[in-house]
Write a protein that binds this DNA or RNA. Sequence first.
DNA 1: AGCTAATCGAGACGGTACGTCGTGTCTTTTC
DNA 2: GAAAAGACACGACGTACCGTCTCGATTAGCT
Lengths: 225, 225, 225, 225
Amino acid sequence: MAESTTGQATRGRPRDPGVRARVLDAALTEYARSGWAGFTMHAVAGRAGVGKSSLYLRWPTKERLLADAIEAHSRPLVVDHDTGTLEGDLRALASHTLAHLLDPVGWVTLRIAVDAAVEAFDVREFSGRIIGRHSEAARTVLDRARRRGELSPAVDSHTVLEGLFGGLLMQALTMPHDERSPADLVGKITPLVDLVLRGVRTAPVDPCPPPGQTRADGPMPTAGR
Amino acid sequence: MAESTTGQATRGRPRDPGVRARVLDAALTEYARSGWAGFTMHAVAGRAGVGKSSLYLRWPTKERLLADAIEAHSRPLVVDHDTGTLEGDLRALASHTLAHLLDPVGWVTLRIAVDAAVEAFDVREFSGRIIGRHSEAARTVLDRARRRGELSPAVDSHTVLEGLFGGLLMQALTMPHDERSPADLVGKITPLVDLVLRGVRTAPVDPCPPPGQTRADGPMPTAGR
Amino acid sequence: MAESTTGQATRGRPRDPGVRARVLDAALTEYARSGWAGFTMHAVAGRAGVGKSSLYLRWPTKERLLADAIEAHSRPLVVDHDTGTLEGDLRALASHTLAHLLDPVGWVTLRIAVDAAVEAFDVREFSGRIIGRHSEAARTVLDRARRRGELSPAVDSHTVLEGLFGGLLMQALTMPHDERSPADLVGKITPLVDLVLRGVRTAPVDPCPPPGQTRADGPMPTAGR
Amino acid sequence: MAESTTGQATRGRPRDPGVRARVLDAALTEYARSGWAGFTMHAVAGRAGVGKSSLYLRWPTKERLLADAIEAHSRPLVVDHDTGTLEGDLRALASHTLAHLLDPVGWVTLRIAVDAAVEAFDVREFSGRIIGRHSEAARTVLDRARRRGELSPAVDSHTVLEGLFGGLLMQALTMPHDERSPADLVGKITPLVDLVLRGVRTAPVDPCPPPGQTRADGPMPTAGR
DNA sequence: AGCTAATCGAGACGGTACGTCGTGTCTTTTC
DNA sequence: GAAAAGACACGACGTACCGTCTCGATTAGCT
């Protein structure tokens, strides 16, 4: 995606496919050992046993290279077990997501995504990369729940995603480095998932006013503040 | 905070307090106009009319300088209007938090905080800086609600914070740059706040028992796993 | 000499005379251990236990300070033994001069003098400092010789000085650092002194008149060869 | 010489030979206009239209760069007219040498050479650079004279060089800046050359042993004025 | 005794050069 | 024509030193 695609006819020496793989590998290793500072094109090229030109031939910037490296190494991550209930699905999803965020690779993704979001880079990158497939998975899960009738029609899938992923993100960010392990995932996610579940399943905010309305009305959610 | 504190007796020429102020100002200005790239110590010193040495005398790194600049310029942010209800308080809090995250200053804070969290820096920085005072405010709000009995005893304040702030964070991060304005805050936060409120309230207690609904079923949301 | 002389009335706290001494000492020590590079005002002040202001109160520049330090520590150097013959006088003078140039202090003097001569500084510094008293001594010696009739009327004292000092200077400059010791001075200066003596003597006057030798006779202080 | 020699096979982009030339030129120009102070790597690079890295790729220090610049720009200086007599040769040699020392380039050479001699740098630099080719020329001249029998066997070539060059050096160093022009070279060198000639030609110190003499020739070598 | 004035140690101040390093491009030879 | 190597122009980094300045604390003579 970030890679320039030559695409056309095959003139001259064909690109060595090994180069891409070696570089991606070296990039991740190098990032892992030095962080963003000290993550040098020179170093990556050196570790990959590759000339810098071969790097720039494929990726226009450091950022894109690293992003690709992460993309390439992230596991397929097909979270779609369909446990049969929203609750089960959500717990599975949350576990996978937190595991991903705590994993070095996911960690890096996060870092880059935030960089991208903060800098002028394309913002789509963020949702695209950090929560790309997670997001799809979540949408699937929620749609399924909605069809099952487990989901209050008042809630917006997008909002649920925000709450769930955002909470997990916060958890990952505030977790001390030394505790950043995928141990006891269930214990970590349970309170948050429970919160979201309660918010999703019960009646709308407007707690049974008269009888009618879904809500949208109620006690004045808008309000200036 | 990031600044080296000499602390002890006042020997030698005292530091010109004006320098700190001018530098902090210049730093923010410079960052605003050029972003992180192009945010140069040289440029900051120049704009502040200060030698580079005076910068490094006070801040060991660029990051710390910028972080301090932000800290210093962030508004007092005392969100404690006590609207009387959890709902009102939460809406106010969410509005303020999102406004802060969308504001350039809050934006920068975010960026630095995440950097800090991702790199080896002390993780406390994150919660400390990005959500420091917001977090306190939230805790106050929630405690108040708990005393009022508005809060389900099952929910942990910490978890609510995660869900709420995390959701707002996600929103800020995924919002395209050009829409990143504090307009229609209420519209932006409402769905998320509603979700959290529903999850938080003193249990479905009796979720409109008579008619019956989808499934506001029993207690049971928690579940061991 | 290089020191600013306030001179006038004595109001206010008088200068601590110990300061000058301590600084001069520290300056020389510091220069000796680090050379010109690394010869820092800060370091000198530190070693002397003195504030930088006290330095700049006395010496306007580093150069002047070092120059003074050298001047202050150079031995009186009264070379005027009056051996009775030009030859003896010249040998003594040359020995002393070479010894001075090889001595660390003389060495430093040379360096500064050349710096001064090369840069825009006053050239008088050079003759003044590097060969100041040596030069006077030499002039005395030569005048005495002229009165004695040992000196060819054709030769100019100035030229003799140039030849002799210049030769010694070259010797000092081209001598490897590790051999730069005042050992065997006589052996080192003899060829050059002999050369000058031959060039200076009252003309070939009568080169070996009868048989009885021109001289080689009489005093014969040196030996050496 | 001061330049790092890669030496081996030619891999990667070869060094642009133009860079060296441009830099050397710029270095000399820059030195000429600002002296040692104000002789900045940045400025040199700028004037040469070259990156600083290219400078440091070739020369490890400022000193070496300047030294090389001088070396490169010093004229071939083949003083070997062979006037047929020692006297003529020596006058020519002295003229050239003094002219070189008074010339800005020679001046700089001197300064650097002395720096090199005084600091820990290799002393060979001094003889190597300041009097390198001059020294060779002188040796040639003296050898020729010796073959012709013009030179007393008692005198050592090395000593003659010391006297002559040293004298010229002194002259150059003590000459006020404003008189430092190559005008009237003959007038300037004559006394010194005469002195040396007399010292070189007459009978050895131990004078006129038998009667024969090597050559106490002519009556009056001086001439000149 | 009080006043005034200069010195002293300390160290902050505005500048500026240093030498290093990283970027992204260019230019070679080799495959 | 891609690949490996590495030179190239550019410019920021953080350190160090310069010479000036501003402190509080002396330490005198002069009133």
